[in-house]
């Protein structure tokens, strides 16, 4: 695929197996790192077994995913206390997914969405989260230089995750 599209707009023959979802706000500096990385990856990879989704500020895109998606890779900014630019790899079990009752639809996160779609019977074989420690989430376009310099490394880590999944699923087949 040559450009980024959301799920289900790509025709019936398109059968992705990995969905890479970038979440973040492009208007808030490094908070948008997941979205920047998705655009970079989509330029690098043109395979029909992977789907790149720019979820932007709308994390509830999971109901739109193709049913054939087995692995989900989420890319997001992560406040984990490390130096800005530190890249992390989390599993779902590492994330605090139920901090309280929502008062606004803004409070329903990607992870809540994941729970909701699993109630619909949609389960993923694996969910991996690649987090990047932001430097600044102040208003402004573009990434800070320190975070921008980390994009190639983060991209190659995501590519490894994708390949790993492909390897596993070919072994099974």
């Amino acid at each position: 695929m040559g450009h980024i599209e959301s799920a289900r707009s790509s025709g019936p023959l398109y059968q992705p197996k990995v969905a890479v979802v970038g979440v973040g706000n492009l208007l808030r500096g490094d908070d948008g790192v997941g979205v920047h990385l998705i655009h970079k990856l989509a330029e690098m990879v043109h395979e029909d077994w992977v789907e790149f989704i720019d979820a932007g500020t709308v994390p509830d895109v999971l109901t739109l995913l193709d049913d054939k998606v087995g692995r989900l890779i989420l890319i997001d900014a992560a406040n984990a206390g490390g130096e800005p630019g530190t890249i992390y790899r989390f599993g779902l079990e590492d994330i605090d997914t139920c901090p309280g009752m929502p008062i606004s639809l803004h409070d329903i996160s990607f992870f809540d969405n994941l729970k909701l779609v699993s109630a619909l019977g949609k389960r993923f074989e694996s969910v991996v989260i690649i987090g990047i420690e932001p430097e600044s989430t102040e208003f402004g376009l573009g990434l800070s230089p320190k975070i921008s310099a980390k994009l190639p490394e983060a991209a190659s880590l995501v590519l490894d995750e994708m390949r790993e999944f492909l390897k596993q699923s070919t072994e099974v087949m």
């Binding site: 908070d31 994330i95 987090g131």
Partner: peptide, 14 residues
């Protein structure tokens, strides 16, 4: 149906 703008979507590990 309140809505506040520009929420940051940073994740926080346990």
């Amino acid at each position: 149906d309140p809505c506040l703008a520009c929420a940051i979507h940073v994740i926080t590990p346990k």
